[in-house]
């Protein structure tokens, strides 16, 4: 089914279509970031990612010195469905 038309970028979501089966970066609400392989998406930017690394950044206050400590928590998830309404941006893979 691969036609020339498939590689043209006419609207924003076409760029995401070209990232299928590639590693993408997704920034989400609530200081969350995902890096993983894009396996599916729809017009709402609901997505399924594979081999996902999730990074959550939070600011904690040290109980004694009251200094702000920036903490990042990472976890790996084999396959993750992401609801589109939490997505801030999707970045296609960097090609070097």
């Amino acid at each position: 089914m691969a036609t020339e038309e498939d590689n043209t970028v006419r609207e924003p979501l076409d760029l995401i279509r070209l990232s299928l089966d590639e590693k993408v970066y997704v920034k989400l609400k609530g200081e969350r970031e995902l890096r993983g392989k894009l396996h599916a998406y729809d017009q709402h930017l609901n997505m399924i990612l594979g081999d996902v690394e999730e990074t959550v950044t939070m600011v904690e206050i040290d109980e004694e010195t009251f200094e702000e400590i920036i903490k990042t928590n990472k976890r790996m998830v084999p396959y993750l469905f992401v609801r589109g309404d939490g997505v801030i941006l999707v970045s296609p893979p960097l090609r070097s």
Binding site: D21, Y41, D42, G50, V77, P78
Partner: peptide, 22 residues
């Protein structure tokens, strides 16, 4: 926010095809 999927039930080829069709 998320749904963690059972790895055995994810057929990536199937998802790619369905996504391109959609």
């Amino acid at each position: 926010r998320f749904i963690l999927l059972p790895p055995g039930s994810v057929d990536v080829e199937l998802l790619h095809d369905a996504t391109r069709r959609e």
